[in-house]
Amino acid sequence: MRNRSAAWVAAAALVSIAPFAAYAQGQPGALPEGEAKPLVEGLCVSCHRTNLITASLGYTRDGWKELIGTMIDRPPTPTCRTS
């Protein structure tokens, strides 16, 4: 539990520096433009590169919610644990 919220805080802090870590267009793992692009660059690159996202199976909104719920904590805590 302690680690989950720590990861969230650390990841959120990264958002502000995200533009400098931007991936150039056309490179593997390059992210399309969009309002939430900096958010992905901030939250999703501390453990792995964005190529895992661009090469993924792809998901619906609910699917993405469930997948990233196994990696980062997003208040309010979603169903990312079985009991």
Partner: peptide, 16 residues
Amino acid sequence: MQDKLTGYLAANFPPN
């Protein structure tokens, strides 16, 4: 914030 995130991911990386 999470809605923005999942919305972006679902729009750009839908099931394939």
